[in-house]
Design a protein around this nucleic acid. Structure first.
Length: 219
DNA sequence: AACAAGATTCCCT
DNA sequence: GGGAATCTTGTTC
């Protein structure tokens, strides 16, 4: 399948029909925006995302078929928003695969482009890489303090991921690494490389200054 | 009913 | 690099 055919795909198609790790990798470089209640468009390019492979994935919230109101979104059809809260912070996921196949992708970081001034305000003045270089920080920059959009289909929400290949940025290199914050006893899932990042992009969480790449790692 | 453990962030040292 | 803040689930007493 040629990638530029995705331009005309809807979210439901995009977030199914391929393995979730492949979907996750394909999201790197695409624009993610959130339009707030004042009609301000906030967002940037996705530079970091993680795949969660469902019931069999020891690190997934749906591991072993675990299901509760808190992770119901994962069980919804591909393209459904799954917002999870933890320690006063919120995470933005999109469900992947068919209904009742609880896989998903976690968007962990963006390179800010649109509405930067407003996002800085939402982040209490935090600027530079600290603005959006983590999943909780990104949602705070969007001004999100609730699970209000949990369980809503992406196309019926203020969130938007532009699937037009002409609008995306092309990384010089996409690297796969183990996921962040996974300390499971099962080394297979703890070490499996399901986190995808733009190599050398400063907005990737934990990126060291001496690893910063020219042009933020874009071609 | 109490408690530990998370897909984290911030503010120290 | 370590500890606190602080919400929800699942486990155990």
């Amino acid at each position: 399948m040629v990638e530029n055919t995705f331009k005309d795909m809807n979210y439901s198609e995009y977030f199914t029909n391929r393995p979730t790790d492949q979907i996750t990798r394909d999201l790197i470089g695409r624009p993610l925006t959130f339009t707030n209640q004042n009609n301000q468009v906030l967002g940037g390019y996705i530079v970091e995302a993680e795949a969660y492979m469902g019931r069999k994935d020891r690190a997934a919230h749906s591991y072993g078929g675990r299901r509760s109101p808190a992770n119901e979104g994962l069980y919804r059809p591909g393209g459904t928003i799954y917002i999870y809260s933890q320690r006063q912070y919120f995470f933005f996921d999109v469900a992947c695969q068919e209904e009742n196949e609880p896989q998903g992708v976690l968007i962990r970081a963006i390179e800010p482009v649109w509405g930067i001034e407003q996002m800085i305000k939402n982040r209490s003045g935090k600027d530079g890489v600290l603005l959006t270089n983590g999943p909780g920080k990104m949602m705070q920059a969007f001004g999100i303090h609730s699970r209000n959009w949990d369980l809503h289909p992406l196309e019926e929400s203020p969130f938007s991921i532009d699937l037009d290949d002409n609008k995306r940025k092309i990384p010089r290199e996409i690297i796969a690494t183990p996921r962040i914050g996974i300390n499971q006893s099962d080394p297979y899932w703890a070490e499996k490389k399901l986190r995808y990042i733009v190599s050398g992009n400063p907005y990737v969480s934990g990126m060291k200054k001496h690893n910063y790449a020219n042009n933020n790692g874009w071609t």
